[in-house]
Amino acid sequence: MNPYEQYNLIDSIRKEDRAVLLEIYKIYFPQARHFIMENSGNIFEAEDVFQDALVLIYLKIKKNTLSIKSSFGSYLIGVVKFLWLKELERKRKYFGTTVEDVELLPGDIDLLEDYVKMEKRKLILEHYNELNEECRKILDLHNKETPISISTSIMGYASDQYTMNRKSKCKSRLFKAVWNNPRFKELKDELNQQDTKVPRW
């Protein structure tokens, strides 16, 4: 793309264009940071929330479900505000934090489902990374659709049956860790409460 062609921002995010991402940080992060720090947050939370907002948008772009009716900037800041509100709700629930009314963004975004999916993904990956190396390796081989005989050889196991059993046990361990995590239950409940609790901006 030549420098004078108008920039297709969405496509650049899809391509994970580093220069574009840096420009987005330069333009929008100060505003997001200001909002979060003015609303009971700190700089580290601002960093995390801003990254989550970009990831959420990136995942929507990848799935071709992104529909921006206003402008990218207002959409991004809207996502930041939404994610921060969800975080404040959690803080209030667990730590009894007093949260002053946060400025809501009037607009056209409805992010609850995307938010729940992203949080579930984070949780799953978090527990995946907590598995031992053997489990991660065998699940990786399985996910890459490696033939079982080759997996057996790579893992140094005695038989293909043993490999399959190990894979099932590792996957079951991951499943239980996620399923039993209270955060997972919260996320399941989020969608159930959607109609009564979450503002539809």
Binding site: E16, V55, L59, L125, L139, N143, K144, K171
Partner: peptide
């Protein structure tokens, strides 16, 4: 959840991003 485990763990997009 069980179905999504493979897909999520297999996808490296989010991690890379």
């Amino acid at each position: 959840l069980y179905r999504s485990l493979d897909r999520i763990v297999a996808s490296r997009d989010e991690e890379r991003f």
